[in-house]
Nucleic acid binder design. Sequence first.
DNA 1: TGCAAAGCGGACCCATGGTCCGTATTCTTG
DNA 2: CAAGAATACGGACCATGGGTCCGCTTTGCA
Lengths: 201, 201
Amino acid sequence: MPEHRSRKDAARNREAVLEAADTLFARHESPEDVTMADVAAAAGVGKGTLFRAFGDRAGLLRALYEGRFEPIREAVEAGTSPLGPATPPQDRVPALLDAVLCFKLDNRRLALALEEGGSSSPYGAEHYERWHGLLRDVLEQIPGLTDSDFTAHALLAATRADLVEHLAGEKRVPRERMRAQLATYVARVLAFGPPQSIDRR
Amino acid sequence: MPEHRSRKDAARNREAVLEAADTLFARHESPEDVTMADVAAAAGVGKGTLFRAFGDRAGLLRALYEGRFEPIREAVEAGTSPLGPATPPQDRVPALLDAVLCFKLDNRRLALALEEGGSSSPYGAEHYERWHGLLRDVLEQIPGLTDSDFTAHALLAATRADLVEHLAGEKRVPRERMRAQLATYVARVLAFGPPQSIDRR
DNA sequence: TGCAAAGCGGACCCATGGTCCGTATTCTTG
DNA sequence: CAAGAATACGGACCATGGGTCCGCTTTGCA
């Protein structure tokens, strides 16, 4: 690549920060009580370094997110798993939502930090856009389903980080139960009523 | 009466603050750029007064909310409208969700401020608890519907303030269209499949 | 080895929620 | 109506946290 690679101290520090942040967010109840200064300190780095590497808090969160999300994204794009494009829509939709839920269960704090993240709503983020677009397109292929756009929003809303945190964290709902509930719910949305489902085409 | 009423200057100031806050939140794009100092200034009052009257930012928001929400709450509790307890569950659920949606459409900024409101997730607020509890109970009465608790959460999630704001505000989805989409969605969730409930699982 | 360029880091800035306390207003009681 | 107690007022003040600045250090190319 033409563009210079970053200096090795920069690269090292970047990694250190990512690791420290990851640990800190995982350790603390609420993302709010992990400050940028904390992250810098834990990484053994100055605040200036931190901000130069990631721009701002959102940038740091985004970087963490991308790292964690890579595998899933790959599975969705090209994989042969139920997430991949080869899966028929009515099976792929639940699989996608289950994947989102699992991701948020596995990365509760991070997802929370990213999603509520203060200033802007999650709906501005481009990763949301991507998921919504994908889901919308898949829904579109299910015959008889109207309002794919809104439906995609509504389904994704059922997996919002703070809801997941509330249920899994405070209400102590076990992982598998949540997955089952979401699956049932999604199935219900996709399985439109008996009488009028026949004539659809 | 045992407990003294508040002094009249206090009462007057309280009103002034509520009014000023209402106006300010309505005028600004994001709740974030209405500061407590702004509110105090607009009300012609000192910050001390503001904080004494409402405790903190959340308290002010809550007070505003309660005022706005009163009518709906009454309709739900005792009214004869479709919101009231007399309505059969399968009709009441859509009515309730439509009411929530309309409220958030009519009070976009306020709802946004209240819901994302920074520190704590909406799921901690007791007004959410109330709505969720009510919806859960009504859902419970619909035969064949399982997981009422989760379903209530998921349905309410479809009316979250930031989603409403995103759709109505940025995406310019007209009010009636949103209501229709939500209604369709809710109907789909409530209209579960035939006896054998599909082979899915 | 020399010397830009890139990077470092922590002192510093500033906005904002929230507190404090001396002063002003209101209520009560005689 | 007087006067003291109780309550409220308000803006200076504080703490916190994101983000910036800039003199010094490290890196890496020649």
